[in-house]
Amino acid sequence: MAAPLSSLDAWILIAIMTVVSFLPRAVFLLFAPDLALPEPVKRALRYVPAAVFPALIMPAVLITDGRIDFSADNARLAAAAVAALVAVRRGNTFIVVLAGMVTLHAMKTLHGA
């Protein structure tokens, strides 16, 4: 599913990241210090993180070859479940990732893959 990036892709990504990171940071500090955001826009912005991350997580965890995969063979599902549990209890990103990766490989070893 994942194709390695070519070196051209990589430099295009660097250019994109430079632009999409700088513009929001500069909008008020550099360009328009007196511009005021309308209240509904501020309220909507509050939901951006909660609405973006699950859209990235769910396909990465549950989709195998274009289909939803709830089977026990899906080691990524068990890894994500353990990571979620750790996240709810501790909240430290590094420990969450570590717990998930350990589970991923434990499950793969268990299934002999």
């Binding site: 993180p49 990465a60 994500a80 990732v97 998930g100 490989h105």
Partner: peptide, 20 residues
């Protein structure tokens, strides 16, 4: 084979738990 790229969705998972 270490599937290090799976760290990425796991990082997002930690973040979503923090923002919900």
């Amino acid at each position: 084979s270490w599937q290090i790229e799976y760290c990425v969705p796991l990082t997002f998972l930690a973040m979503v738990v923090m923002v919900v």
